[in-house]
Write a protein that binds this DNA or RNA. Sequence first.
DNA 1: TCGTGGATTTACCAAATGGTAAAAATTCAT
DNA 2: ATGAATTTTTACCATTTGGTAAATCCACGA
Lengths: 205, 205
Amino acid sequence: MPDGTQKKPSRIQKRNRRKILDAALDVFSQNGYRGATLDQIAAEAGLSKPNILYYFQGKEDIHVTLLSQLMETWLDPLVELDPDGDPQTEILDYVQRKLDMARDLPRESRLFAGEILQGAPRMAPNLETALKPLFDEKCAVISSWIDAGKIAPLDPQHLIFSIWAATQHYADFAAQVSVLVGADTDSHHRASVHLSTMFGKMLRP
Amino acid sequence: MPDGTQKKPSRIQKRNRRKILDAALDVFSQNGYRGATLDQIAAEAGLSKPNILYYFQGKEDIHVTLLSQLMETWLDPLVELDPDGDPQTEILDYVQRKLDMARDLPRESRLFAGEILQGAPRMAPNLETALKPLFDEKCAVISSWIDAGKIAPLDPQHLIFSIWAATQHYADFAAQVSVLVGADTDSHHRASVHLSTMFGKMLRP
DNA sequence: TCGTGGATTTACCAAATGGTAAAAATTCAT
DNA sequence: ATGAATTTTTACCATTTGGTAAATCCACGA
């Protein structure tokens, strides 16, 4: 029994759990939690459904595992916001990292968005324990930069919301963006320039 | 048979169709298309499931009806962006209208977001025919304002994306926002001030 | 008031779906 | 090689879910 609080996972266990989680990321991010089926995940992973249930306790277990693994990756750019760096550079670099993530990890962005959109039924605890402390900490950093006159006086909380919204939009609303920008050769670059300009002007004291 | 291309709907038909659509908006926006069940919608509407299917051809019919009705409301603020008004005022008013909509119509915002998030499977045609022409038209308006030196030179397409993202964030990610801002007495007002400041600075030539 | 057409309920169904038991196959240390 | 442990498959099951047929109810105009 690979589930539960057991010892070291075998090589084959690691491989299959990874295959399942990758397939599940595809399926969950495309169809949402309830829209995804174990059969789809199984087919995508190249395994049988009972075989999947040999590695995970159930559908919800897969989803929760995916979400908690994701949280780490997701918060990483914010963790790297350095209180001792140059405020403007730090924030603009943060915007850039988030935009890159929207391009490179769109499935993860959509999985996260879908979960929040439905009221975070399986992630609320994680938000409180992992996200909120980090959020508060970085808001304090931004406040100190404002107090020191290094950047314009903006509401730190809502500034961060604006950064999240503007960057994740390109992953979460990709279907809409692609219809509206048409066959753009380098949409990512234009978005990058726009966000730099926008937040750059905004931050100047 | 009330469905199909029939004559004038009776008063009772209007009432029940409205009840169903309102219930469906609740259920679809909370659980997504596949997560929503006809039984839930029926219960919420206070009708039996077969009775619902007397008024609509099926689950998808309800969803599509909801989406196409929504499109009108959704585009309205953008329609009102006046090419002959003061550019700064026009755009800031647009931001305000969108933010008000996120507060007043969160269900609609989430329904829309969920549909786009999953690749707009039931709305792609609508996006092409209804949204894209309006989007292109208003991008041209913004371009003309930039050419006239009335506002800062920003990419019109991405400026609109930023406005959509920043405002809709408060409806679509409400679960996250409420965890992070805690018991704020007037979160909407703070968001409003922030967005005015932000886009105000950004637009100044 | 009575009949007719629209509205509603009752009783279903077939397919999909999450999940399980147990047999079969495979891996692996000895 | 061989027996034990792990992994995978086969054959199911109970529930949920979108949908239907037909009987029943009810509003309303003549």
